[in-house]
Design a protein around this nucleic acid. Structure first.
Lengths: 223, 223, 223, 223
DNA sequence: AATGAATGAGCGTTCATTCAT
DNA sequence: AATGAATGAACGCTCATTCAT
């Protein structure tokens, strides 16, 4: 899959100085900031608290990042790069489209479970209030899954593995909607509760079965 | 469809005094508050600004609502009741499940277009940071669509209109994921952009066609 | 004991309307206000709370009293009149000076126990912050005990019951200091604690004995 | 006189940062705060006014003290330590009990004249409304004089310098009541006026004579 | 490179008082 | 005579950011 020309891999929201400090300090900053932003949201998070939690002085924070906004976007950006890498790996290593869908579901869930805070932050940045911030990511956020999914669907279509009469764009969109909220269901309390209400406590115990059912749903739709 | 016993229809987040003031003042408060909460999110919204915008004194605001939180929840609660009413009407007036799905899609979109601010607020309250507030709505938020969708699916199954071997819970969940984000796509900049990227500027011009395609996707999955 | 010419018996801090409403309403206002002022002090007491507690509307309160200040002073004034009456009765009904001292001690304690709130308010108005209010009582507060005590001492001196070489003014002053704080010791937590520290928990059980000891102290000083 | 084990000398109501700023800033804060608290009482004093008066930003104030309450208690605490030091010096340097009583009277008056504001604040904290604050001083306030006075009396008794049949606890209590209000008489308008009424304008001109008379009263009581 | 003291606008909220009913 | 809705200044306090060290 060829590299997107739209995506600027070199956006950086930190100052040069952040590269020059020790790895330990970088980690402490990002860890504390991620915790706070995830738990409180962008607006209710205090830079002073991040400073205290990380044992990095406010002055240092401001020498690494020009503003609270930049620190936040830096984390979002990294999170996105991580998710992108994971999804691309999945796409590359899948046998066929249904295998791919199943792996993507699992990967989404695993990401949400492993990095619940990143997922919570991701949800946060989709809100209207943060759209001025999201703009600075130059749509980076939305590009990866459309490209991946459309590519997979197109390929499957060419191989005759899916119905001819379905609009591949709409299919990708529907599938991504399913994936996206499924992923949120493993990090935000709201979507967790929603998952539980839809599926019932009992069913939640066998995640594998749920994912198989979702794949089955999608497969029935497109095969 | 029988009334849920779980849902307390009588939760009120305003004080009695709010009922006693004039309709004009009630509207001004709610309108200004809705605008502000939608545009800035809960945390970045200032009660003082709402007071200024609505020409209602701060003291009056606090005589209507015990706190900023209550004012916010009052709006969310009303918005939810409105959405619930709309969806129930749709379910009641539909010929069959596919008609119902199509109407629900349209209704979701119409709601988002008519009340973009309510939709933005709804997105806001799904974030982790606001989950302490969401709790006060006693899960009211998540209950309506599961019940509606499950009911419709169950009925269709009994009538032999959909496949036997699909888990109705998972189907409802997948469908609701599609609906939910589709609805967000007409109010939040983020999801608007996402819709555009998936479907392309061209396709967006024919909303009707998009909805038909989504219905087709779902129908293929379950029929 | 002749009536003081200095003291204006006719100071009234309420408006005429307060006399015209029912006794029940008068009581409810004064009771709620006394509770609040005693517990929170003048400044931290809210008229709105008094209104709620008494079930008398704010409008009515302001038709009875021109201001929060006047309501407060009205209570202080009444309390003082009550205390004055009690002390004068004691003075009138005492056999001799030592009997009088003992009865005054007991009366002070009984007043403080029966009307702890009035006593707390009395302590409050002696603070510097409230001196602008106290001024409006035209020194009424301070006049009663000096007159009573000086009169008693003078009479006792004339009767040869107390030492010749002691300054009667200083004696009255010292005695009143003892009485005043003794009285506070039965209403304010601070002075209660102080009494306990001085006398010990054990001794506190026999109040009668304490008062006898105080009288003994004073008697030894002046006899 | 041995050190009290009850009293924690190390209570601090300021944050560490207060120690780190300049002496000039510390003084400006404490001076402005003392003035305001003394003149208006705790509740009617505004942090914003203290900030303006002292030319120290609100943010700085809150970096020195966690709250208005802590700033207030810090001042009370310091005032108490100062008074304690003075009284202990007096006790140590006195020839005998009567010398000690006379010096304590003088010291009380001098303290009140030199630091009228501290004395006004001390009176304020004895009121019922502030008892929740006073609690945080862990009874520190009330401990010093009982210990000092009881010690002095006990020693005098052992030396046979005072009557055998008087209860030393009650004596200390009575003496302290006299001292306490005498001290208030030089700072609060209320108690000033009261002193004037008791002793008369004329007598007030010879403070030395008044104190001698008070000592004489006490001496007569106990010798 | 790193610190953290300092700033002050702005927050959510309270409350004495007014006045139309 | 009585109500209580309405006002808005002022409160205690937070926090993004600057800058001297």
């Amino acid at each position: 899959m060829k590299e997107s020309v739209l995506k600027n891999k070199h956006i950086a929201f930190h100052k040069d100085t952040f590269n020059k400090t020790t790895e330990d300090r970088r980690q402490k900053v990002l860890e504390a900031a991620t915790e706070e932003f995830a738990a409180n949201g962008y607006n209710a998070t205090s830079i002073n608290v991040i400073s205290k939690k990380s044992n990095i002085s406010i002055g240092a924070l401001y020498s690494y990042f020009a503003s609270k906004e930049d620190l936040f976007l830096s984390i979002v950006n990294d999170a996105y790069d991580l998710m992108e890498k994971i999804l691309k790996d999945v796409a590359k290593n899948s046998r066929d489209i249904y295998d791919c869908i199943e792996r993507m579901l699992a990967a989404s869930r695993e990401f949400a479970v492993k990095y619940p805070q990143l997922n919570q932050i991701y949800l946060d940045i989709t809100t209207q209030a943060l759209s001025p911030l999201a703009v600075r990511l130059s749509n980076k956020l939305e590009i990866i899954t459309p490209e991946l999914l459309c590519g997979i669907i197109r390929q499957a279509k060419e191989e005759g593995r899916i119905k001819d009469d379905l609009d591949e764009k709409v299919i990708s969109y529907c599938m991504d909607n399913i994936f996206m909220i499924y992923q949120f269901s493993f990090s935000s309390d709201y979507y967790k509760e929603r998952l539980k209400i839809f599926l019932g406590e009992e069913k939640l115990k066998d995640i594998n079965d749920i994912e198989k059912s979702i794949v089955k749903f999608i497969r029935a739709a497109i095969e």
